[in-house]
Design a protein around this nucleic acid. Structure first.
Lengths: 329, 329
DNA sequence: GAAGAAAAATGAAACGTTACATTCGTGTCG
DNA sequence: CGACACGAATGTAACGTTTCATTTTTCTTC
């Protein structure tokens, strides 16, 4: 043993008494005479050889690494997405580079740049920056945000989910539905939740109000103000609220009960996402469930598709409704 | 423009009319004449050049990438850890490769192998496999599991936290404490929680029972059986339970209330971890809080320390107690 | 058994960097 | 005014792979 540094293919070739190219073939599962393969494998084991994927990546321009860009990893929706993406990727022998942006457009751009330097094979991104610059040669799949015809976008059926929420609420006896969302910086596919909700109400001939809370102002005060405006004789004008996310639903439920309004007796609530409780795994509220693992898997499938000539522009995955105690059923 | 492939340093050098080495210096912040630097930067911008970190990694043996190995990313404790690790790493311009193992020893070994191939600069691992083979030349920091004198282990002060729980429970009037854990495959630092608890009880002259639930059998039935054995005239023999994790605490609280036992009136509960609720951010239960961001930051610090000659063997970070409604205070 | 074809192993070139030994140019001092 | 020294740019040799044009071996067939 001469060097104390990591053994290379050359060392293995020397040890096994074969040529460099032969060693390469063995580690790439290319046809090699059985006796050679055995000798090489033996030598590699003895030396503790491991392929250097940086050298390999340099030569082949494939790194078997995909970057996942998310706002954060603590939000259960994002962590479920990451878990799903990891599982789909590792099933195909891919590694996952995780980048977190705090929903900050500059951080998003920095991530993209950093990740492009790293020469990943593709990016799955859930980003808000409206004018991200990303190398068009690098496969990119966007979650929940449509960038244009040459970047596939994967999302749940937000419109359909909104309709579903409306129909459920009406079916459960609501007469005055309200749609509630917190204002996001930038339009995304999830805005269609409200569109679907309103469309279904209209079709059923029910008037539907909507309120957009500004998260910079804090949710609490503006919502209180809104509520007091819409109280008539101690009762809330609205008897059903569709909230754009489960997180919002939880907040709203808290605020309603502080004001003495009972859920679901006085007001029924439906959320969106299908986030589940830590350890018990049950839902926080009645909600439209996004198929998170399928969402992640679809992203990976699309990203790693061999034939990239005819990719779908926008994929909407079906959602389902489930009761979680904030509706009367 | 000749190639349609990504521009290289050679292209930049050609465009700027300087030598290859000069371009390299510019991108490594080495001293270069100002006029040259400007020319190179201009050319790079024009061509859209980005450093190829695979080529760089091959040459320098540094990749500015660290692997984080966790059982999963959906458990809030792990995702908080990942978030903290990401923040500490990205502050130092490092990228994070995430590997998930499902606590499966073979998956753990596969991860290590895969990650070693990828020539990361170091590994932060929260693993259970007792005989992991990891390249001793590769910096490794273990979370919560002591591997030996040459692998630094970062954990919370589990023993101290256990003591703290005992003291709190006794102070709040408990006379018959119980320690509850679910059996993990392999010993880790977190086992000391029970040791600390028992030691503090002993010192105060209080008898302390302990129960180890086997998670393969399911928690529910064995715990029910245990409870019924320890009921005396409709009252539980134990008036305070220290659960080894918050997750367990939540389960236990559910089972107790199903049996008509009130928390905290009849039984007080203290958990461990300091997991916080989705969106509201408050605690699930009275608990010993682990300083998760500091835990993560410490791992990164230790891993990226220049001088690796004199690393601490075992670091215990201080924990704190906070009430979360499952104790009487 | 020799010649030719097919199959398989070989080894050199290239991938895009960095690092180092060279060369070049400028300014200083005798 | 020439020689020297110093700083700065240059260009080449690695880094550890893959790939492909060669060479070598093996097998057919007459």
């Amino acid at each position: 043993m001469k060097h104390n540094s990591a053994p290379t293919m050359k060392d293995v070739a020397l040890e096994a008494g074969v040529a460099l190219g032969t060693v390469s073939k063995v580690f790439n599962d290319l046809p090699v005479g059985e006796s050679y393969r055995l000798r090489v494998e033996e030598a590699a084991r003895k030396l503790g050889y491991q392929v250097n994927s940086y050298a390999r990546g340099l030569k082949t321009n494939r790194t078997f690494t995909v970057a996942l860009i998310l706002p954060n990893i603590t939000d259960p929706f994002f962590s479920a997405l990451a878990q799903g993406a990891y599982e789909s990727l590792s099933a195909r022998q891919y590694r996952m580079l995780l980048s977190l942006t705090s929903s900050n457009p500059e951080a998003e751009q920095r991530c993209i740049r950093m990740v492009q330097q790293n020469k990943v094979d593709g990016i799955i991104g859930l980003t808000y920056n409206p004018n991200l610059e990303v190398d068009p040669a690098l496969p990119y799949v966007s979650i929940d945000r449509y960038f244009g015809p040459n970047v596939p976008c994967v999302s749940s059926d937000n419109f359909g989910g909104g309709q579903m929420a409306a129909e459920k609420l009406l079916e459960l006896g609501c007469r005055h539905p309200l749609f509630l969302r917190v204002g996001s910086r930038v339009p995304g596919e999830s805005d269609k939740r409200g569109d679907g909700f309103e469309s279904a109400c209209r079709r059923r001939g029910v008037k539907c109000d909507s309120l957009r809370l500004n998260d910079e102002d804090g949710l609490v005060e503006p919502f209180r103000a809104f509520l007091s405006q819409h109280m008539k004789g101690g009762r809330l004008e609205y008897d059903g609220i569709f909230c754009a996310t489960d997180a919002l639903t939880i907040h709203i439920r808290g605020m309603l009960s502080e004001l003495g309004l009972r859920v679901p007796e006085d007001v029924q609530l439906i959320g969106f996402d299908g986030i589940r409780r830590f350890t018990t795994g049950d839902l926080y509220c009645s909600t439209i469930i996004q198929p998170i693992p399928r969402l992640a898997e679809t992203c990976v499938d699309l990203l790693l598709r061999e034939d990239r000539s005819n990719l779908p522009r926008l994929i909407c995955l079906p959602v389902t409704y489930a009761s979680g105690g904030t509706t009367r059923e």
